[in-house]
Design a protein around this nucleic acid. Structure first.
Lengths: 135, 135
DNA sequence: CCTTGACTTAGAGTTAACTATAGGGTCTAT
DNA sequence: ATAGACCCTATAGTTAACTCTAAGTCAAGG
């Protein structure tokens, strides 16, 4: 079973433009073509794209993802680099989770602040522990 | 106690360029100036900037943050809008946390994959449950 | 046979968020 | 009083990641 570029785009919630852009940037050297040049995506290609999306979601720039893709092409000699890369990603994601949890706390506070103000009809209810004009 | 733009930049891990850019975009209408135009940041201004940074960290674009700042200037008539905004942010952050947790799981899998491969000296150890050429 | 629709490339354009430069003002310390 | 270290504005440049257009190829249906 193979898929066209627009089918894959739909599956991954991307556009065909974006997939071609990724290809141009060297993120998909594995995708095969029909004799006349049309891209044919295999299931494994889609799985690989999901990993790419995963790396992207950690904030990894496309150029670094390409470096990883290149390492994959290079075989066993780059196992250490790839392992290190994922360890580094793990650290990054852990930090992001911590950051996001702090953010969530602040947002919860703001929700309470505004709920109370809204019930009172005025922000003046927080007069004594307001930050300033902006809250 | 007031602070100069570069002191604030250092405190918030931003550059003075960035702070001036935020100001130009209307994110800091509350910052006062000396007679000759130099910005003077109060503690409460720094607290407000922290909220701005918090919103930014949820992926909120600067133009939407400005909308919130404008609402704050408008007073009690915009309490509902501001409450709704924070509820929406809360939903967004919750989704981001879920996404990031899934990402973390995948990355953990990859770490194990590469640890095993590295110990074996070859990726072939995963021959039977490999995705494709890229893993 | 010819139109329609999906594919192709090359390259231009867009957007957000900075980031830097030029040119000028002001304050402080020698 | 002049050098150095700040500050200011206006405006230009950069970067990443798309996003789109133009011009063309190809296969299927009427």
């Amino acid at each position: 079973m193979t898929y066209s570029i627009s089918e894959v785009a739909k599956k991954l919630n991307l556009t065909a433009y974006t997939l071609r852009y990724y290809d141009k940037e060297g993120l998909m050297p594995f995708v095969e073509r029909t004799p006349n040049g049309t891209r044919l995506f295999k299931e494994t290609d889609i799985d690989a794209l999901k990993i790419i999306e995963c790396l992207k979601s950690t904030g990894m720039p496309i150029k670094e993802i390409k470096r990883f893709i290149d390492w994959c092409s290079d075989g066993d000699s780059t196992l250490q680099e790839r392992y290190d890369m994922f360890l580094e990603r793990k650290t990054a994601v852990k930090a992001q989770l911590e950051e996001l949890n702090k953010t969530m706390e602040l947002i919860d506070h703001k929700c309470n602040y505004y709920k109370t103000a809204l019930d009172a009809g005025t922000e003046d209810i927080h007069r004594n522990n307001k930050i300033g004009t902006f809250n």
